[in-house]
């Protein structure tokens, strides 16, 4: 991202939302989850274990500021103050750098918990395609992790890999998915797994007369094959749920579904909030337990 770059093709939509039908002032327990990722940061606020509001934005220069900015968005929109939030859990890559968090939990556990809420308790396999990593998770009916792998070594199959192709094609990242279906015939996947080699391969395809859309299709297919090969290490059990930014790219999602022969559970909620939502729900469970033990004592 040099200063001379004219257009930022990788830039995606930031969102802030609250559930107007709920009144947080009536709530007994308000918890928050803050997911500071390498690329995006999310804050989720739950009232009595139900989703109330969220904010999703690009991660800034440092984790504490990103965490503050993320939660401030929801607080301002709802008129809440940070003091109104009983318990805060940090997760994601910058989880230990959330200054106002009471506890940190890994994003693996949080994504499983969040997916369990978003996709229902029948979700058993979760694929999280984040900005700089990719996770495959199995969980039980309570959203507890039973098997996981996380790949943050290699850019292939991550949002960063998608940004590289958006820049290369000079097409906004949100258009990549729809464009990948606008082709005369479905091309073979780009053969290189490595993003660096795939990039030169994509340039070669353009030179060979492929349309941009066809190159994007070849790249989306490669990305789908790549993440499917990751999930296959732990296997797929239904229901299947996708979280993270790439869940918004139908070009990759549809191809993954085709390769796996199963449909991903759909959700109206923003796929990027799963981690933060899981963290907020973990907080709620903790508070409930503490309340119960306080009563018992």
């Amino acid at each position: 991202m040099t200063a001379g770059e004219k257009k930022e093709y990788w830039r995606w939509q930031e969102t802030c939302w609250i559930d107007e039908s709920k009144n947080w002032r009536d709530a007994k327990i308000i918890t928050a989850g803050i997911d500071v990722g390498s690329v995006s940061s999310q804050a989720v606020i739950c009232v009595d274990g139900e989703l109330y509001g969220y904010n999703s934005m690009r991660t800034g220069n440092n984790s504490p500021d990103s965490a503050r900015n993320a939660i401030n968005g929801v607080l301002e929109k709802s008129g809440m103050k940070l003091e109104d939030v009983t318990y805060v859990i940090g997760t994601g890559y910058g989880r230990v750098n959330v200054p106002f968090a009471h506890k940190a939990i890994t994003e693996i556990a949080c994504h499983a918990r969040g997916a369990n809420y978003m996709g229902g308790n029948t979700v058993r396999t979760i694929l999280d395609m984040g900005g700089q990593d990719c996770k495959a998770i199995h969980c039980d009916e309570k959203g507890k992790v039973t098997n996981f792998l996380m790949n943050d070594k290699c850019a292939a199959g991550t949002g960063r890999g998608m940004e590289v192709i958006a820049d290369l094609m000079q097409i906004p990242i949100a258009e990549l998915g729809p464009r990948s279906f606008d082709v005369d015939e479905e091309p073979e996947a780009v053969s290189s797994t490595c993003v660096v080699f795939a990039k030169s391969e994509a340039l070669g395809l353009l030179k060979a007369g492929y349309s941009k859309n066809k190159v994007i299709a070849a790249y989306c297919q490669a990305m789908a094959e790549r993440v499917v090969s990751l999930i296959e290490r732990i296997g797929v059990e239904n229901d299947f749920f996708i979280t993270g930014g790439i869940a918004k790219n139908p070009g990759v999602v549809k191809r993954i579904e085709k390769l796996l022969g199963t449909k991903a559970v759909e959700t109206k909620l923003d796929s990027q909030i799963a981690g933060a939502l899981g963290a907020a729900l973990f907080g709620y469970t903790l508070m409930q337990k503490q309340g119960a033990s306080a009563k018992a004592a």
Partner: peptide
């Protein structure tokens, strides 16, 4: 829980 640490890249799959 099975925790898989490692990665898969172009050269192969490396998990403990």
């Amino acid at each position: 829980m099975i925790a898989n640490y490692g990665y898969k890249d172009g050269s192969g799959e490396y998990y403990i």
